[in-house]
Nucleic acid binder design. Structure first.
Length: 276
DNA sequence: ACCCTCACCTGCACGC
DNA sequence: TGCGTGCAGGTGAGGG
């Protein structure tokens, strides 16, 4: 269930653990995890390849390989990686299993079956259909005030839905959308194109801030198998969100009651008095 | 071209 | 205990 900051933590762990190691085998157990290729092709394109490094585009995790290919993966709602000892048994819903050197296994587990993989030529990585239409990286200079204002202009969609559109703003998900709108004092139902220039600036900064806050939490954790799942808040612990999941609780700024509404099919949390 | 709704899965927390 | 309902941090396909 990760958004960009959680994916970033997972990527740092994977890069730390896997760089320089080799896929001895690559077993695609659930065909629909990688619908564009057969299990046989999946194995053919990966076995024997060494992992140069692991990086990221939006919420997609990218394994750069020394055979000129890149393994693209997406965790969607419930995907997670495990690095297992030779003795450890695989968890339920292990849909792809990679043997590494020295008997360890990298496992992709996904209870809800929404996750995704593909293997593409690295030379055409950013033209791949998974990545081609993604908006600029929100933590890069490309995600500028100018870009953000232009992408809001001329659309009547509500701002919450727009923030979830990965072709407009990439890396934001359902939690960070509520959080950024609260921080900026923007009502989630606001018409995107009607938001003032000043508010767009504040909202863009708020998106960056909520992501950076989580990244700072993750800055000092060990980049090992204990954090490969991206659960940087620890088991059974929700994030310390400002509004998300706080329906009926008091607003941290003004003490009025946090509301929950449904937009599209997703929950949005906000404060009616702080967010106008 | 745009925008909305639904579908894809399993499991958990809740109320009766 | 059991069963029904609603909910879950994502996104693509298909319809209007």
């Amino acid at each position: 269930m990760p958004e960009l900051p959680e994916v970033e933590i997972v990527v740092r762990c994977l890069d730390q653990i896997l760089s320089g190691r080799r896929f001895e085998s690559a077993e695609l157990r659930r065909q629909r995890l990688a619908p564009d290729i057969t299990p046989k092709k999946f194995a053919n394109r990966l076995v024997g390849a060494q992992i140069n490094f692991v990086h990221r585009r939006g919420k997609h995790i990218l394994f750069d390989l020394d055979n000129g290919r890149t393994l693209i993966t997406h965790l969607r709602m419930s995907g997670r990686f495990w690095l297992l000892d030779p003795e450890s048994s695989e968890p339920k819903f292990s849909h792809a299993v990679f043997e590494l050197d020295d008997g360890e296994r990298l496992v992709f587990q996904d209870q809800r079956h929404f996750g995704f993989m593909n293997v593409v030529e690295t030379s055409r990585l950013f033209q791949a259909k998974e990545l081609a239409k993604l908006a600029p990286e929100p933590l890069s200079e490309d995600f500028s005030d100018d870009y953000f204002r232009k992408t809001l202009k001329g659309t009547k969609r509500n701002i919450k839905a727009l923030l979830l559109d990965q072709t407009r703003v990439c890396g934001v998900g359902n939690i960070y959308a509520s959080e950024a709108l609260f921080l900026a004092g923007v009502r989630p139902t606001a018409v995107s194109g009607a938001i003032t220039k000043a508010k767009t600036v504040v909202l863009r900064e708020s998106i960056v801030q909520v992501m950076n806050e989580t990244l700072e939490l993750g800055a000092n954790i060990p980049l090992d198998r204990s954090n490969i799942g991206g659960n940087i808040y620890g088991p059974n612990s929700d994030g310390d969100w400002r509004v998300y999941g706080r329906e009926g609780e008091l607003c941290l700024k003004c003490r009025s009651t946090i509301k929950r509404i449904v937009q599209g099919t997703r929950s949005t949390y906000y404060c009616r008095s702080c967010q106008r």
